[in-house]
């Protein structure tokens, strides 16, 4: 880890961003109540307490996605990661948590580490996750049973792996968007935002 203390490499950046997604998705699922709160356990990471799922199916799914995502982050072929929350009764998309990923493709050629300490990156990540937690105050309540899906926007020339398939963008009809904080590892920049369905009362 001595190398990471000095700076950050492409590999380290990909791992860091993938880790952020893992924690971020977990906390969204916990905060939005997609899975019951008793299936989550408390862990401390980024100097803050976070919720991680204990549901074996969900765990398996998330590890599958995150490992694949790490690969793509390393190849700099991923553009967006979107967490879509769908209402099961009406099949309507209610929320879209979008993480735009800007890859610095020049990092692929030059393997020299970038000058940015892990601590500052983690600080940025922490503030993003805090903001995700805070969004619950203004997002409309999910009253019906919902399920989530993870969409990955990739470059067109990417070969889709066996387990994956193409999907629609799952755009919300009549949405309100809120931009959240962003963070950068100086190789990958992640802009986060949430779009939610406009309710009639609002």
């Amino acid at each position: 880890m001595t190398s990471t203390l000095k700076g950050i490499t492409l590999k380290g950046s990909a791992e860091m961003v993938a880790e952020f997604f893992s924690f971020g998705i977990n906390s969204i699922l916990y905060q939005r109540g997609i899975y019951p709160p008793e299936t989550f356990s408390r862990v401390t990471h980024y100097d803050m307490s976070l919720q991680l799922t204990t549901d074996p199916k969900l765990k398996n799914y998330l590890t599958n996605v995150v490992t694949q995502l790490k690969e793509w982050l390393f190849e700099c072929t991923v553009q967006k990661l979107v967490l879509v929350i769908t209402c099961l009764e009406t099949n309507e998309v209610l929320e879209r948590w979008q993480f735009d990923i800007e890859c610095d493709k020049s990092a692929k050629e030059s393997s020299a580490p970038r000058e940015k300490s892990i601590k500052t990156i983690q600080d940025e990540i922490r503030s993003v996750i805090r903001q995700i937690t805070a969004t619950v105050t203004f997002l409309p309540l999910l009253e019906t049973p919902c399920a989530f899906d993870l969409l990955v926007y990739t470059d067109k020339d990417l070969v889709v792996p066996d387990k994956w398939e193409e999907s629609g963008p799952q755009i919300i009809d009549q949405s309100e968007e809120v931009r959240l904080r962003s963070f950068t590892t100086s190789i990958h920049k992640v802009n986060s935002m949430v779009a939610y369905k406009k309710t009639d009362s609002a």
Binding site: Y61, N64, L151, T154, K156, G168
Partner: peptide, 10 residues
């Protein structure tokens, strides 16, 4: 761009 997701998603 293309959008992909896992076949067996929740």
């Amino acid at each position: 761009t293309r959008v992909v997701h896992l076949k067996m998603n929740p």
